[in-house]
């Protein structure tokens, strides 16, 4: 009886494909099974079960999956590092105060734009420093940029002209011709908004925080532009002024150019 218990413990290993049971133990088991009907039954039952369980299939992931796996991991690591860095104070200086000076309605545009601008400056500095040898500190900013997925980079390419159009458009005045009053096409905005939302959903878990934030902010802008109030004079003027004062477009173009270079690597 006591022997049966010991034999039972050996069974799973005896049926293991990895040859984990020493030969001596295996012999002991087989000897016992010859004489013991109950253990023999038990063994057959177990063998049947494990035969089924051994048919378990595992997905074969493509080479692209494995390559991207590492990239996704690096993005998460970068994001984790960034969170750590963001915890250090005095990073955003007095911008919040400055922004709070604006009307609520204007702020919703300025916040995202400011955040985007900060991001752009940060990345630009990162890129600048990365061209100097031995500046490892900025590696995260640069490498996160390098891993902008082609889809996201393309999306940014699509959004930038729209923001350009928007900021270059002249104030709506009754005296102006319709052409001069033209704002961004609502259908284009909606298309970009959808694209933004889809990309965001795809990237939620894997992209680094700054890109995610930028996407959130772009979504806010696009959402507002697609609204009926999107072309209100007030909003437009605030945005235009902000863009001009902060060289936003210049920086975005720089980013775009740098982005393409790094993507090409």
């Amino acid at each position: 009886m006591r022997k049966c218990k010991k034999i039972k413990d050996l069974m799973p290993d005896a049926l293991n494909d990895n040859n984990v049971l020493p030969q001596a133990e295996l012999r002991k088991l087989r000897e016992h099974l010859k004489d013991c009907q109950r253990c023999s039954e038990e063994y057959k039952k177990l063998a049947a079960l494990l035969a089924v369980m051994n048919k378990r299939q595992r997905p074969q992931m493509s080479d692209a999956f494995w390559e991207n796996y590492s990239l996704r991991l690096e993005e998460k690591l970068d994001a984790a590092e960034e969170v750590k860095e963001q915890k250090s104070p005095a990073k955003i200086f007095n911008l919040i105060d400055w922004l709070d000076g604006f009307d609520f309605k204007i702020r919703w545009v300025l916040y995202p734009l400011t955040a985007a601008a900060i991001l752009v400056v940060g990345i630009a500095i990162g890129l600048y420093l990365s061209h100097q040898p031995g500046k490892d500190i900025m590696n995260t900013a640069v490498s996160s940029l390098r891993r902008l997925s082609p889809a996201v980079a393309e999306h940014f390419d699509n959004v930038l002209p729209l923001l350009l159009d928007y900021s270059n458009s002249s104030p709506q005045q009754t005296g102006n011709s319709p052409e001069e009053n033209i704002l961004v096409e609502k259908s284009t905005v909606k298309k970009l908004l959808l694209e933004n939302q889809l990309l965001k959903r795809v990237m939620t878990k894997n992209n680094n925080i700054s890109v995610n934030e930028l996407m959130n902010e772009l979504e806010l802008i696009l959402l507002e532009l697609s609204n009926d109030s999107g072309d209100s004079e007030e909003t437009r003027r605030a945005v235009q002024r902000f863009i001009k004062e902060n060289n936003v477009l210049f920086k975005m173009k720089t980013l775009e150019k740098k982005d393409k270079q790094t993507l090409a690597i």
């Binding site: 997905p59 996704r72 878990k205």
Partner: peptide, 9 residues
Amino acid sequence: DESVSADPV
């Protein structure tokens, strides 16, 4: 994720 759902064979 796009690449994760890419039909595993």
